[in-house]
Design a protein around this nucleic acid. Sequence first.
DNA 1: TCATATTCCTATTTATTTGGTTGGTTTATA
DNA 2: TATAAACCAACCAAATAAATAGGAATATGA
Lengths: 142, 142
Amino acid sequence: MTISTRGRYALRVLIDMAENQRDVYIPLKDMAARQEISEKYLESIIKVFVKEQIVTAVRGKGGGYRLSRQPEEISVEEVLLLTEGTLSPVACAGASPSCRRMEDCRTTALWQGLNQVIHEYLSSYSIRDLMAGAGCGYDYII
Amino acid sequence: MTISTRGRYALRVLIDMAENQRDVYIPLKDMAARQEISEKYLESIIKVFVKEQIVTAVRGKGGGYRLSRQPEEISVEEVLLLTEGTLSPVACAGASPSCRRMEDCRTTALWQGLNQVIHEYLSSYSIRDLMAGAGCGYDYII
DNA sequence: TCATATTCCTATTTATTTGGTTGGTTTATA
DNA sequence: TATAAACCAACCAAATAAATAGGAATATGA
């Protein structure tokens, strides 16, 4: 039951983009250095966000990446769904449950409930909430 | 972010034990057949519950397994912790967080919060709650 | 114009975890 | 004393995660 490096790195790099957003594009290289993540690996992670138009990319010298939306318009759940595929802890509580034991399974509702609390929690946070200085006097949400 | 078959099978077999508990011991074979799980694999899963004295085992002919405690005294969280090792979705929110980036990491609190909601949810359910006929008029919790 | 800096693309590699299987030994009972 | 049960220690195969490699396309600015 873990969130993979892909998801964690994705979040970190989107926060990095949000915090360093000026009117320029930020080269992957810079973010990889700041976040101490391999450039090539990060590249493969960021790809899907470009495709989903959460991030805008510009090629060539002077190019780089920037967020296409405001940080508060990007939810943590959305980010993790794109990297992890699903956030459901078990297949039977996911988008298309399929298990021939479901009918007399005692645990289906348990998993669906777990799914629900995870969904509620993760959808309640945006990239903005994770940026330095956000919320409640701490640097972090509490 | 998934609960492995080990955890799911463990829950199912403990529920099976609870539902079929008379004054006799239940052979692994019977439960494996009812739950459609390989005997040998189930054996390797059940081992830890015997060790932790959640289940009592009796060897030899006429032997088998039974719960050592009442179903309401066994929480779902406890069961899953024993099979999954940890329920923390990321290492930095687990029992012994260790990441040299923690100090200026923006996501630590997010993961700790997620950990917390999962903990609260899973610790609120016992094996009893998952048995057929438990709670609220449905066969399942809702 | 052309070296340089960037993203984009496809494939390959390596490590780890998951989900088992094999082949027994030991223990108790009817 | 045959049989049915739990116990034990390896081993294995497939899938997934976590990168790495090597370049092609594209834009800039010196």
